[in-house]
């Protein structure tokens, strides 16, 4: 694999071809906030929190670092007034869904997001897909999946599989940024396979 050199926040970063901007930044110790990213999983690009500005052939554009591939000569800005404003908005929108999520509130503090900016619509799940993808890609059990679409999209356990696999696994629990996953599991458990 050939080596490429890109510039992230004014710092020259050596990376390998095929790496995403996020991976390149992290390898150089530059922190970009993420919610839906997990090292063991395929990039998903759902939360958009890792948005950065890249400059390529003199043109600037906003991309999400977790799916945008690093390229030779790329100039990346990971924080600016504009980026912070977008991230603040994303956090505020997510907080309308999960107002008491610890991770979100930490981010809110950093970016000065107001958790009361938007009317609360507590669905708790922010569709980061970590549980669904972890179960599918790492455990290959497919015990939890998404159902429906758009504003009605939610996660749903398959009771038969969950009853068999989940009690001894629960590896996805700590991944959930809002703890909704645990609630969904307990609900499925109490409805479909109450523990004796």
């Amino acid at each position: 694999m050939s080596e490429i050199i890109l510039k992230i926040d004014g710092k020259e970063v050596r990376a390998e071809e095929g790496m995403t901007v996020l991976e390149a930044a992290r390898s150089a110790g530059i922190e970009i906030p993420t919610l839906c990213h997990h090292d063991k999983l395929e990039p998903f690009g759902a939360c958009r929190l890792c948005i950065v500005e890249v400059q390529e052939r003199g043109r600037k554009k906003l991309v999400v670092a977790c799916v945008f591939l690093a390229a030779d000569g790329l100039v990346v800005t990971t924080r600016s007034e504009k980026i912070d404003r977008i991230r603040k908005m994303i956090i505020e929108l997510l907080l309308a869904h999960a107002p008491d999520s610890f991770k979100l509130r930490q981010l809110a503090e950093e970016y000065g997001a107001d958790r009361n900016r938007f009317e609360k619509e507590a669905s708790f799940c922010i569709h980061c897909g970590l549980c669904v993808r972890y179960c599918a890609e790492v455990k290959q059990k497919y015990a939890v999946g998404f159902i429906d679409r758009g504003i009605r999209k939610e996660i749903s356990f398959i009771p038969e599989i969950a009853a068999k696999e989940c009690p001894d696994c629960k590896e996805c629990f700590p991944l959930c940024p809002t703890s909704y996953l645990q609630a969904a599991f307990v609900l499925t458990e109490s409805l479909a396979f109450p523990s004796s």
């Binding site: 669904v132 599918a136 497919y142 999946g145 159902i147």
Partner: peptide
């Protein structure tokens, strides 16, 4: 195909 994926498609 995992049932979870079928369920996703069937509800989509």
């Amino acid at each position: 195909v995992p049932l979870a994926r079928i369920q996703h498609i069937a509800t989509f």
